[in-house]
């Protein structure tokens, strides 16, 4: 049996978080994770047309007693800041998000640069906690982060590093 990939490990960690619903819009770094999610029988996967839909769908699932996650790229996160503020912050709805850390120092795509430079200061201004996921050890810690998110009662963002996803 082959060794689990980082995408296998991420999905396994979400299972340990008791996540039963994922909502996503692809970014090329996380596409293999989303394809892996599609094959996971215990997790309903909603593929959305715009990232803010993922925010709202995962938030709705919260009220069904389901644990959920929204998955997207940093550019997509930038597009749904208004919804995160007026849905999750206003109603104190926890939302666990896994976001590819586009625009990082090792992401040499000019069209990602502004998002990478500005997204974290913007999250700080909204008082949305975030952390980086750079290693297998960090993936193992995701259940703690998930519980922490529930207690925070607001969006908590785990940034998936390029090194982790792309090697």
């Amino acid at each position: 049996m082959s060794n689990p990939t980082v995408h296998d490990q991420l999905v396994a960690a979400l299972k340990r978080c008791d996540v039963g619903l994922a909502a996503s819009l692809p970014d090329d770094w996380i596409t293999p994770t989303l394809q892996r999610l599609d094959r996971e029988p215990g997790i309903a996967h909603i593929r959305v047309a715009r990232e803010a839909e993922a925010v709202a769908a995962a938030s709705g699932a919260f009220f069904a007693g389901a644990r959920s996650v929204a998955v997207m790229g940093a550019t997509g996160l930038f597009t749904c800041l208004g919804e995160l503020a007026t849905l999750n912050l206003r109603h104190q709805i926890p939302l666990f998000m896994l976001v590819s850390e586009r625009g990082s120092r090792d992401d040499h795509r000019i069209y990602q640069e502004v998002q990478g430079r500005r997204i974290k200061p913007v999250l700080e201004s909204l008082d949305f906690p975030y952390f980086r996921i750079t290693s297998t050890a960090d993936i193992e810690e995701l259940p703690h982060a998930y519980e922490w998110c529930r207690m925070q009662k607001r969006p908590v963002i785990g940034f998936l590093a390029r090194k982790l996803l792309k090697g």
Binding site: A57, A61, F63, E83, H91
Partner: peptide, 13 residues
């Protein structure tokens, strides 16, 4: 809030 996204919220439910 989140005008437009109540339908997505309902879909999650």
């Amino acid at each position: 809030g989140a005008m437009g996204f109540a339908s997505s919220f309902a879909l999650g439910l």
